[in-house]
Design a protein around this nucleic acid. Sequence first.
DNA 1: AGGCTATTCAACTGTCAGGTTGAATAGGAC
DNA 2: GTCCTATTCAACCTGACAGTTGAATAGCCT
Lengths: 115, 115
Amino acid sequence: MTQDDDERLDRAFLALADPVRRQIVARLSRGPAGVNELAEPHAISLQAVSKHIHVLEQAGLVTRTRDAQRRPVHLAPEALERLTAWIDHYRLVHERRFRSLDALLAQDPAQQEDP
Amino acid sequence: MTQDDDERLDRAFLALADPVRRQIVARLSRGPAGVNELAEPHAISLQAVSKHIHVLEQAGLVTRTRDAQRRPVHLAPEALERLTAWIDHYRLVHERRFRSLDALLAQDPAQQEDP
DNA sequence: AGGCTATTCAACTGTCAGGTTGAATAGGAC
DNA sequence: GTCCTATTCAACCTGACAGTTGAATAGCCT
């Protein structure tokens, strides 16, 4: 785990730690959209939404293209994949340890915690 | 998506948006540990680590037990599972849309973006 | 050119997260 | 009881983040 990876994960997890940004991601999963459209469900200014998009972009979760004066936002699923990869790794490490501990206890009840 | 769910996701994603806390989660995937042990790899005070653990606990990512004056921290994998569930849901929505768009384009190249 | 739309930049504000130090609590061990 | 260990509480500082308003940029449209 390099420091670069760390910063990338920081930004990605932080980006998703906000309901507005999660809703933007949810909307984008159904296809690209412009700032106005993304802002519509929220009771905040357009500029605030623009900032949220920037945060998502820095986290690598979305990309932007150009279409006349519009700058549509697109979901970048690879970044989402990196997050699940991180989480699932440790979830599996934990589960595997748990299973082998179970097996150990089943064969010798005298053993407790952390062999 | 209720507001309660939102707050729970906020806390969980925010909890993982910090390298110290992620390292704590990584360590705990290998078994429970006390504050001192969790603090050892980090160049910050014990109190700071204690706060990090509190954040993880509020997010439901860890639980604590008691063992004499120790208060071991345990990983709570269900919370991790909720996170991957959220991410994977939208990842799949996106992928499915992408596939069907591909299919559409393959059968009629005149169609472009968002049918 | 002038106007309309979409989006961003800039400056400012209030809140909160992460760190520190110093004192306090909880529970063995002697 | 007294000491030692593990952990937390409290008060404080600093910086980053989410929001605001107002001005600026970019690119159609007539």
